[in-house]
Design a binder for these strands. Structure first.
Lengths: 211, 211
DNA sequence: AATTAAATAGTGGTTTACCGCTATTTTCTA
DNA sequence: TAGAAAATAGCGGTAAACCACTATTTAATT
């Protein structure tokens, strides 16, 4: 049983590259090649591949748009993003949409092959380069410490309860303090963190890991 | 110039393990060994190591507590967490506090050595096992898609503006619709997402990448 | 063409959050 | 041990959010 692979990319050079990579792999067959979003959506109605190699930007539609539609209607199709951009945010978005992998176009042949096979077997694949970036990204967020020391112990405590969707009155009852006190702490945090309302407080709390 | 290494861990077996690993590395000297938080804080006042191997749970104080205090007073000390737990959330927390690395106690000798040296040289180090988990964690968050389709286009639009700390009135003006309409969308989202207030909305938005 | 879902707008009301003050007690720290 | 920072509590008031309805107009889908 051969693996049916479809490619959606408007750069012939990429398509040819993939083709040559797969020259010696008889168990993978390229069944369809699309160079724009419209033809991809049309074609996939009639014939669903096992794995779809999807470019991030086709001339008429974006990767996220296409992935959303395809995964909704044909959830069994495994989408492997083939992109030239390594913006982590975009990577995260596509994976959250349900894509099974994300590789960069400048990956070497073996990596691409490995990715296709991993995804086909129900696995998930992320370019080694991106894995490295993910780790670095984790260290990079060190703005935390500044805001972390900005708030007092009690303020952090109250902030956590705010994130947990409690009202000021509930927080007051829980901590055995007056409603006024909670309000004071809350406003004090609004000033310290330079945000306008609850939304801002929750945002900072989640971003800096205070909650 | 020898690297001064301090170890804070209450398990003699761990300390001995480290000692034996470093037997053949004359450029690393173990200057201090502490088996509880108090003595660590005392000792570090008099003599600061280049790198501190810190256990996550000492008998009297927790890792986060100790790291916070130490990094505040002696920011030049590089803390390398040596933990037996691999809960990603804890890893993230420690790194956000400003620790320079996180390795598991069952790491092999070479990894531990590599970690100490990397950290000393101003680098950051994360156990390979944890790097792998970080990638898996990224894929795991697929709850997104469910909640993603739950909200309508307009609702998502409004949710983003809420996250950006806008009031209902501001949102209404921005979208050229009535204040009532915005309120309706907002309440509709509260029900759909099963949250109680703005805090809940923002939380879901950030968690699922809707904003 | 018919049905559904989404977006729109309203009434009327309650609850909660936000704001600027003052002021006391407690806790930390130099 | 004096001074600072934090936690506590209050007053009076405005703005915003939350809630339960009804109802019309636009898409979208079948």
């Amino acid at each position: 049983m051969s693996l049916k692979l479809a490619i959606a990319d408007d750069h012939p050079i990429v398509v040819n590259g993939i083709r040559s990579i797969l020259r010696d792999t008889p168990h993978i067959t390229i069944t369809d090649i699309y160079n724009n979003g419209q033809s991809l959506l049309q074609g996939i109605k009639e014939r669903q591949p096992d794995v779809l190699l999807l470019d991030m930007q086709l001339p008429d539609m974006s990767g996220p748009e296409l992935a959303t539609v395809i995964l909704k209607n044909y959830p069994q199709v495994k989408i492997l993003i083939l992109s030239s951009t390594d913006v982590l945010l975009m990577v995260k978005k596509m994976l959250k949409l349900g894509c099974m992998g994300y590789i960069l176009k400048d990956s070497d042949d073996l990596t691409i092959l490995k990715a296709i096979e991993t995804v086909q077997n129900g696995g998930q694949f992320l370019s080694p380069v991106l894995q490295q970036q993910l780790v670095e990204d984790m260290f990079r967020n060190k703005k935390t410490s500044r805001k972390n020391t900005l708030l007092t112990r009690r303020e952090k405590e109250i902030l956590q309860l705010i994130v947990q969707e409690h009202t000021n009155q509930e927080i007051a009852d829980k901590l055995f303090i007056s409603l006024h006190t909670v309000e004071n702490h809350r406003i004090s945090m609004l000033h310290k963190l330079e945000v306008k309302n609850t939304a801002g407080l929750v945002k900072v709390a989640l971003e800096t890991g205070l909650a």
